[in-house]
Write a protein that binds this DNA or RNA. Structure first.
Lengths: 224, 224
DNA sequence: TCCTTTTTGTTGTTATAACAACATACAAAC
DNA sequence: GTTTGTATGTTGTTATAACAACAAAAAGGA
């Protein structure tokens, strides 16, 4: 089987092909496809696999006791999920992992992650280093989500989120990876209230939009 | 100088004293005390140091453009902060780090963190491993904060937070590490509205409280 | 193409939180 | 003890979002 595609993932960055081969042999793997909206992991399950998105796209969501859904993150090809839980054996998953579209997922069994296979195996160590980079990056993503939801008004949340998107795209014209419902879940607000606020903001001349494509007007730039 | 105290920190777990000595020599350190409410790090600064709380207690907060403060985390003795930014050179700090009380902080220069000092120096590698554990743990903390603020009502947020605290303490009687204002900032709600909701919940027989000590009644247990 | 389904936007009503201003309680300093 | 300051609780008003129900638009399939 050809594992060339893994060379392009962040998890295996800087690890040569033969190193990847030996790591995979050491850990054990699985490859699986999921239809749109199917559950990849359920909240509550113990997790022994890191997931890597090969194609498609997934998201991490939390459903509380009242049925509110909130979206924590969105993960595209080449990226990794559930690594937190794989690093904390016994910690039950607090979130659901759901496919946004038909997606192919590669699973890496991590039971042996913290056992060094041979003393100071350099590939294993690079893998740990890569995992550190990934969790640090996720940390930033979670922090950002917190910042975007710290405003008490919908408008404030939208301005925080959209102006960050503009910054990241390096342009005031950009597309976002969410539809309205998902954006509402990400910002922890009601969808129809979100639509309503967006159209008010458009009336106020702050931005124009069409579906998930936005253009921020100069007025917004005062906000950072 | 005696660095024995570092043996008890998560960051240096499983590293023998002589290993710690050589790591410190490799990295460079600093030790400093901060008065109550003083800023340890300012948002916007580039960070080259991991901070370790030796005594006292600090918190991480975010202040948005409208002056809303939200608290992301609270860090006590033996624990580490700013490690995310130390791992991402160039990423400017998005938060303020503030001392809750007079605190002594140990700083570790991390410019050389990702350079292996000597090929496969085992202490260095254990340090990276420990850092991974720490960031993974922080990830869970951030996720939890998101869950506690995902409810749209103050009561829902309080129930989520308080029942988690009870679970963690293994008892329905427990103290929380926040005063009212900090709890309000952690849950992203108005302080007076929080006080109001708490006294309503007390009237409704869900809990009793006095200052930061809470007793949850059986009714609450339906919530998980 | 038409029909069906999904997504997005609109409106009105109601619940809830924010905000402001003040009262009370508690703690610290003198 | 008294004074000062800080933390917490209370009340009333206002702004805002949630919610529900529906309309319109877009997308996907037959």
């Amino acid at each position: 089987m050809d594992f060339q595609f893994l060379s392009d993932t962040i998890l295996f960055r800087e690890i040569p092909s033969d190193g990847i081969q030996s790591l995979l042999a050491c850990f054990g793997t699985e490859r699986k496809t999921f239809p749109k909206n199917s559950m990849i992991f359920h909240a509550g399950s113990p997790i022994h696999f890191i997931g890597i998105v090969l194609s498609g796209s997934i998201h991490i969501e939390h459903n509380d006791l009242w049925g509110n859904t909130s979206i924590l993150d969105r993960i595209g090809p080449g990226n990794v999920f559930a690594e937190i839980y794989a690093c904390m054996p016994g910690e039950p998953l607090m979130v659901d992992v759901v496919a946004d579209e038909p997606s192919e997922i590669f699973f890496l069994n991590t039971s042996r992650l913290f056992q060094v296979c041979t003393p100071s195996c350099p590939h294993h160590q690079q893998l740990i280093r890569n995992l550190l980079s990934i969790t640090v990056q996720k940390n930033l993503n979670l922090s950002r989500r917190i910042f975007h939801t710290s405003s008490k008004t919908i408008r404030g949340r939208l301005l925080s989120y959209l102006s960050f998107q503009a910054l990241q795209h390096g342009s005031s014209t950009f597309s976002i990876p969410f539809d309205r419902q998902q954006l509402a879940d990400y910002l922890s607000v009601d969808r129809s209230a979100l639509s309503h606020e967006l159209s008010k903001m458009q009336k106020d001349g702050l931005l124009t939009y069409r579906k998930n494509k936005f253009i921020l007007k100069d007025k917004v730039h005062r906000f950072h």
